[in-house]
Amino acid sequence: MIVGQRKPIQEIIGMLKGIKNILILGCGGCATVCSAGGEKEVEILASIIRIDRKKKGGPVETKEKTLARQCDTEYLEELKDEVDKYDAVLSMACGVGVNFLADMYPKTIILPALNTSFMGVSEEQGVWSERCAGCGNCVLDKTGGLCPVARCSKHLLNGPCGGSQNGRCEINPDIACVWQLIYDRLKGLNQLEKLQEIFPMKDWSSSLHGGPRKIVREDLTL
């Protein structure tokens, strides 16, 4: 899923300066699953904003709503009859939702309440970590299913570097050295010979370096 976390409250309050009527818009997809921008978080954020503004003598009207997702036209269209009523929409979706709202409602101020962090997993209650960098050119068949692009601090394709010690990454002992994990896993699978081949330089044009990406599936388009 896409993992995000709410921006610091003072940053959000700063964005809302002068705004008197906001729609705080949750997302029922990833943002709900990672407890950053679902119905519950919308409710909490709305009340924090109201209390703050009341204290400062500039009350604000908040409307709370959570869509099934913010990355599909059909759900965003639910707003079409009401969006003009607000000074701004504060989206609690990932950056994808914020963008799509802005694309769809050109005359409305759309603001982000979250920092979109990464594509990752929920390791345990309250702990998320990155697994995929979305580079557009998957190498996991060669690395035992573990991604050096997302999980090696230097995206090494011929690791591990000289800073791998006791299974940890040199930049932070809280980070596992993915190349140690790859080594261990390939050893367990009797595939260590895969590590003896030189991994060629990667084509980054399928990642963000090739410009914004788009997929068109002729078989599905109407």
């Binding site: 230097k154 090494l156 394709l157 011929n158 690791g159 570097c161 030189i198 991994f199 330089m201 980054w204």
Partner: peptide, 11 residues
């Protein structure tokens, strides 16, 4: 990190 040291040598 467009490349790593091994790829740099090769290049």
């Amino acid at each position: 990190f467009d490349m790593d040291s091994i790829q740099l040598l090769q290049m």
